[in-house]
Design a binder for these strands. Structure first.
Lengths: 109, 109
DNA sequence: TATAATGCTACTTATTTAGTAGCAAACTAT
DNA sequence: ATAGTTTGCTACTAAATAAGTAGCATTATA
């Protein structure tokens, strides 16, 4: 499984390519969840696993590698944690919390 | 495959539940992409398929059903298109475009 | 120095996604 | 009116991804 990363197919016309890579990466099971959990606090491998409903270690391991390669997380003394890039992603994804609440309200109607 | 929808497990303490459902739904291959394409313009089944790199009709069909159930898209004369809820999701996801560009720049370094 | 927790890897099974074919209904051109 | 084309699917099989379980080497803790 290769890590989706933004490419530079044609310099100056990469519009839309980067976000496609983002969709691809974030559209893999657990990735958004992992970033979300790490945005609350750094976590160990097993800690992350617990937070993520006991997700299988094999998948967690591959996600850690992908997110590391994408420079969104890194390994520290305190466990896995977000890079600055990872944190900035969570900031842009933050409005999703509010939207989700609205979504829930609309569906309930 | 069931559609992830926000639930009301305990009234008043659903914080975080709705966004988990959002992560689950958006974290399925093609869903963000489909919404993205429909945000540009309404599309027919086959039009959508083409825009999405020729994704398989079986998966597209199941995605259409899920997104419809989640009230993010609906079927119209002009083809599939976003509901108001779907549009508002794309608005909240819009900053991701800018972030992706920054991500690309950082990875290139 | 025994015990337990941690960060994995290996392996198998289940689920999801891809790929291909094709068909019924609607639309279009003759 | 009717032959050809496009559209919106469904059915089926194959490939890829995710889940589940076991366990082991290393490090921390008692």
């Amino acid at each position: 499984m290769t890590t989706p990363l933004p490419k530079n197919p044609v310099r100056g016309s990469q519009t839309g390519i980067a976000i496609m890579a983002a969709f691809d990466l974030l559209g893999r099971k657990w990735n958004m969840r992992i970033l979300w959990e790490l945005n609350q606090t750094p976590l160990s491998f097993r800690g992350l696993q617990e937070k993520c409903d006991g997700m299988s270690p094999s998948v967690l391991n591959s996600r850690i590698k992908q997110l590391t390669e994408a420079k969104l997380i890194f390994t520290s003394q305190d466990g896995y944690q977000l890079t600055e890039l990872g944190k900035s992603l969570m900031v842009t994804l933050d409005p999703l919390r509010v939207w989700s609440a609205e979504w829930e309200a609309q569906l309930a109607k």
